[in-house]
């Protein structure tokens, strides 16, 4: 396989599995035909076209697989969304910390702050990088290194604040972080679930979502300080919007169920952290709404799947 073909295939692996089953070889062939013999990379315009088309295919390809696969894909996507949101938030917080540091270093760098704040943040970021690398290269060792890193961060919290606060802090740190790792481990463990299915959209999704999460955090901070809102208002509003979206999509049966299962998983995971750390009843309420709606959505899907025959796809039925 030429380097060009390898690169083209890597781009095409971004498409959903059902799409690739039908079109992959054709798409590879046609893309290669648009390249000249000297080219070792696809034309940027074609590469961009492939990426955009892949995202579009993910958003519009109906879930024709059996329901349990759809559910699994949704959960994996949700874990990926969650990891993306987490990375975005971490990057932003790390940026703030770096800006805050010079102003405070005149009186000597507060080493305790560094150990408490920057240390765990850097470790968690590193853990996510490890997760991505482990998934891409299918390296179990890296995966477990990442998981242990997250565990260590949790431990750090328990040591710093002994007693129930420390445990809460550690759980709040470990639970949302653990979800992507458990999912990743499961994806690697099962041979039936296609690795590409979970991992390739992940890379596109991660980049987009981290960017969006960073923008969201900034907007939330800006709105909170400008209009003197109670801290956390924007998060609650966002949870409410996500819950409403889920309701609307469940009721109307609109679009691919995978994305809504994913949204449910991401919102639940995200709020678990806040709830564990602050015990905020509103966060709990928001999470409860999302969990309920996701559950209803799941029931609807399950009934549909049962209606179209267990283990058989809609496409086969058609």
């Amino acid at each position: 396989m030429s380097p060009l073909e390898r690169r083209v295939r890597a781009l095409i692996s971004l498409f959903p599995a059902s799409f690739r089953a039908r079109w992959e070889e054709e798409l590879v062939r046609t893309t290669l035909e648009t390249c000249t013999a000297e080219q070792s990379w696809p034309h940027p315009r074609d590469a961009w076209d492939l990426v955009l088309s892949a995202i579009r295919a993910h958003a519009t390809t109906p879930a024709t697989e059996p329901f349990r696969l759809v559910l699994a894909q949704g959960i994996v996507l949700g874990a990926i969304l969650l990891a993306g949101v987490r990375i975005g938030a971490l990057l932003l917080r790390f940026g703030w910390f770096l800006r805050w540091l010079p102003a405070n270093s005149a009186a000597g760098v507060p080493s305790e702050e560094l150990a408490l704040y920057a240390g765990p943040l850097a470790l968690e970021l590193a853990a996510y990088v490890l997760l991505a690398v482990a998934l891409l290269h299918r390296r179990r060792v890296l995966l477990w290194t990442g998981a242990l890193t997250l565990g260590a961060i949790g431990l750090l919290g328990t040591l710093r604040y002994p007693g129930p606060i420390g445990i809460r802090w550690a759980l709040g740190m470990a639970v949302p972080g653990a979800i992507p790792f458990v999912m990743a481990a499961c994806t690697m463990g099962t041979r039936k679930t296609e690795r590409a299915l979970a991992v390739r959209p992940a890379l596109v999704g991660l980049a987009l979502v981290s960017f969006a999460a960073t923008a969201f955090r900034f907007a939330a901070w800006f709105a909170t300080t400008t209009w003197h809102l109670v801290p956390g208002t924007i998060d609650r509003c966002a949870t409410a919007v996500a819950a409403l979206l889920l309701v609307a999509c469940t009721v109307s049966g609109f679009a691919d169920p995978r994305w809504f299962i994913a949204l449910g998983v991401a919102v639940i995971g995200w709020n678990t952290r806040d709830f564990l750390q602050t015990s905020d009843p509103l966060v709990f309420l928001g999470t409860a709404v999302v969990v309920t709606v996701s559950w209803v959505h799941w029931r609807v899907l399950r009934r549909q799947a049962a209606g179209s025959g267990q283990g058989r796809s809609d496409r086969e039925m058609a």
Partner: peptide, 30 residues
């Protein structure tokens, strides 16, 4: 075939619209 469609489309639009392979197969599937 796929590449034939790309060439013909480019000629029909006198080179003003250049279809990418992703767009082509996405549209073909639909």
């Amino acid at each position: 075939h796929g590449y034939g469609i790309l060439l013909e489309a480019s000629e029909l639009s006198r080179g003003t619209i250049r279809l990418g392979p992703g767009t082509l197969y996405g549209a073909l599937e639909r």
